[in-house]
């Protein structure tokens, strides 16, 4: 069994329902995302169109994050899912440097690496991932890619030639496919990111990696002191000046 995902971008309408369902199902903290939907505007006014691309972990068969993890916190499950053991993670961020898809984040609450697990806990109970269940247009298709009769396999067969993966040149053998995508949606270098020009906010780069209230000394003192609860207001500061260094 090899579980995989397929997103039909022709169907996706950018409602972000999957993004929210994922957040709720997995208690993903503010400033972090396991699944996100990116809007890209193509063309020049008035001849423009907007595309929506859901992005999540690709659960690669040859996963660079699993290879670089020094303590096997990132590991394969028998069904092909690349899972995370947050209790073992040392927070070295090696996986964040290795993942070519930028799918891993440092959880600001646990200060450990985390990412989409295809809702492994739900799969174990015979349920579908939260993002699949919530999608109003069934753009998210999930199943066993090694089973020729599964819905995902049938879908791939039906769209032969039109099925793509992100960054195939990285030889990661991703198990996350797209139908209806193009270079401009799947290649992050094929579209521009204009600093400070986003639809709703001007935050383009995070200022922190992990918990912003957890400095170097706190990391050492944490086991001996209680770490206060924060209201995370800093995440909601929309006047936040965007990261000076980043972005294209």
């Amino acid at each position: 069994m090899k579980l995989g995902f397929l997103v039909d971008l022709n169907l996706c309408m950018g409602c972000k329902g999957c993004e929210i369902a994922c957040k709720v199902e997995n208690d993903v903290p503010l400033s972090s995302w396991r699944l996100r939907v990116k809007y890209i505007d193509i063309g020049t006014f008035p001849d423009t169109s907007r595309s929506f691309t859901p992005l999540r972990c690709n659960h690669c068969e040859n996963a660079p994050c699993e290879r670089i993890c020094p303590v096997s916190a990132l590991h394969y499950l028998e069904n092909g899912i690349v899972n995370v053991d947050s209790h073992r993670c040392i927070g070295c961020a090696g996986c964040m440097m290795a993942c070519p898809y930028g799918a891993i984040y440092m959880d600001p609450e646990t200060n450990t690496a985390d990412k989409c697990t295809y809702c492994a806990h739900r799969i174990e109970s015979g349920m579908m991932p939260a993002c699949v269940v919530v999608c109003p247009v069934e753009a998210n298709i999930f199943g066993d890619v090694e089973d020729d009769h599964s819905h995902i396999s049938q879908y791939i067969m039906a769209h032969q030639g039109g099925v793509q993966v992100r960054k195939p040149e990285k030889h990661t053998d991703p198990k996350h496919y797209y139908v209806g995508g193009g270079t401009y949606t799947l290649d992050p270098l094929a579209h521009q990111r204009l600093e400070g020009h986003n639809l709703f906010t001007n935050i383009t780069h995070l200022k922190h990696n992990g918990d912003p209230h957890h400095g170097v000394l706190d990391r050492f003192l944490a086991p001996f002191t209680s770490h206060g609860t924060h209201d995370n207001k800093s995440f909601m500061n929309f006047d936040n000046i965007h990261e000076q260094e980043g972005g294209h």
């Binding site: 400033s31 995070l206 990696n209």
Partner: peptide
């Protein structure tokens, strides 16, 4: 112009890790 592509909505990306 016809193929110009710009990200108009996305999450904040990590900075220097």
């Amino acid at each position: 112009n016809a193929t110009q592509a710009v990200v108009t909505l996305d999450v904040a990306l990590p900075g220097i890790i």
